[in-house]
Amino acid sequence: MKLTRRGFFKIAGATGAAAAASRSDPAAASPPPEDPYGCLVDLTRCIGCRKCEDACNRVNGLPPPERPFEDPTVLNRLRRPDERAFTVVNRYFPGQLDASNQLVPTFVKIQCMHCQEPACASACIVGALTKKENGTVHYDVTRCIGCRYCMVACPFEIPAYEYHDPITPRVMKCTFCFERISKEGGLPGCAEICPTEAITFGRRKTLLEVARKRIGENPARYLDRIYGEKEVGGTSWMYISAVPFEKLGFIDVPDKPTPKLAETIQHTLFSYLWSPIVLYGLLGGIMWTSRKNRPESEDEEGDRR
């Protein structure tokens, strides 16, 4: 086996870069929090009042909306969360009719799902996005370099970017009211204001029990599915509904955590730096054998020169 000088540097360079990349991402290696907070959104309870949007705007100091929160025509078109609104409520008409033959609306609140194993945090090369013990997927603006890999990675297409701000743009997404819920008895702004408790705040484990209990006690009202229980490895925000989630704009995601494949490859290859050690060992072995097999005359000639 012949190994050219150029080929050797190619391999060495690539290996080194990959090793460095795997170590610069400490969050991705950490396991999901054991007892995180979460929110259970009961779509059968939501009345579409958009108070959650109002409260979110207020507690996060976001810019005033283009149309007032009381304006019901806003619901006439489907929206996505953006850099000016961390959460939006959309209205769907899944086809059900009420007693007076009117279509029954279902309202869906969208925000960051705060995944147990967030793809954005895994993709973030500087550790600006981290999964906290209380369940929050937290964004640290001082670390962010604006690469927007998180926006590409997110399976729910949530993070938005302040493209209008050329000097200090930020990635904008729901904060799960990190500061508020870190305090004793603190609640996310949206959960606190919700008039019908369509948003239930609590420990994720408790919420799963509550959700199962609600479904079990009223099987005619709910579908037997908790969106977010298993999706992408589980999320802190979860939904129960009377209408199939596919009809309500929910993204069909696999149960496997999104970062699983990439992280498995990385962590398998570079745990304890075994692969570079093996590689360099192998190369050293090749060098050693090739030197040993070289005729002595060549060495002597080289010395003389």
């Binding site: 009345i47 606190e192 008039p195 019908t196 408790e197 919420l207 029990e209 209990k213």
Partner: peptide
């Protein structure tokens, strides 16, 4: 109060009013 950890299934007063009335 809403979201009591000792009674997670019990809705709070505000939600009870709104759900019942609406």
């Amino acid at each position: 109060e809403s979201f009591r950890s000792d009674h997670p299934e019990r809705i709070g007063l505000k939600a009870a009013y709104h759900q019942q009335c609406i």
